[in-house]
Amino acid sequence: MNAFEYASPTTKEQAVKLLGNSWTEAEVLAGGTDLLSLMKDHIVEPKRLVNIKSIKELGGIAGTAKSGLRIGALVTIQELLDHPRMRKEYAALVQAAEGISSPQIRNMGTIGGDLCQRPRCWYYRAGFGLLGTQESGEPLVPNGDNRYHAILGNSGAALFVNPSSLAPALIAMNARVKIYGAKGQREVALEKFFTAPTTGSQREYDLQPNELVTEIIVPPLARAKSATYEVRQKEALDWPLTTASVVLTMTGNTVKAARIVLGHVAPTPWRSTEAEAAIVGKAVSEATAEAAGKAAVEKAKALSKNGYKIQLAKVAVKRAILLAAKGGTR
């Protein structure tokens, strides 16, 4: 790890001043569960770390059944799981969080960090740059080992998958993210927050180097049914092969509105309007859920070694819909 300066501001105004104008200057430090490994491996080498854990206003979960929720960026994954309203009203988020099956990570990792964590692409993590390229500029992923890479949204330069399990659930819930920066406060739909970079110096999300995620706003969901289905090989700590989060608004057994978002299949969380269209207006059954799964992967394109993920994505969508319709409990 390179030597770095460490700052621990107590307000977001101070924090933003300490952040730099380029990504190489400073990094935000939350739980550190991702950032520190990146630094130890010399993948990210900030000159300054801005620890945000002392900024009180970035913590806490607040809200009512009517107003929805405000989740501070510093809320840990475990705090999400422990919050009394979550399990009942936001099943998809709880199930996504449960998939992060390491108590240590859940206790340290924050929701802001989960959304802003960097891709797990092994070429990126081995020092071949965000997009995984050889010195010649030749991309490594298409001809390399891409078993865990993208099957959707993979026609550009970015072939990694977005690593966040919480993001698809939050996007399915139509969450918004509040950002504070040198130019003040702004708010974006979380769905619009993630981007697929076209060069290795870009980030995978809509943040400037001097901006912070401060909170996540989740609309009320009390009357919707939601679920996340994660395909993960191991019970023990393991990355998902794919996840699907769904939020269904139902009349009886008929779906009136749906939001379906896949995780770990594309460089960004992947909202599938095709799957949504396939299930809206239908009664939920094995057959309609299966059809929605099929629709979700209609445009999927396998790389050389990840064709199996198309099947997994299809099943994840099907099972998430069935799970949600059942009331979100397995």
């Binding site: 070429y123 081995a126 050889q134 490594l140 001809n143 390399g144 080992d145």
Partner: peptide, 18 residues
């Protein structure tokens, strides 16, 4: 990885154990 000659999963995340 045949192109780079490197072990891609020289860590406990992707060298998986039960």
């Amino acid at each position: 990885d045949q192109t780079t000659g490197k072990t891609l999963n020289a860590n406990m995340e992707f060298y998986k154990l039960a």
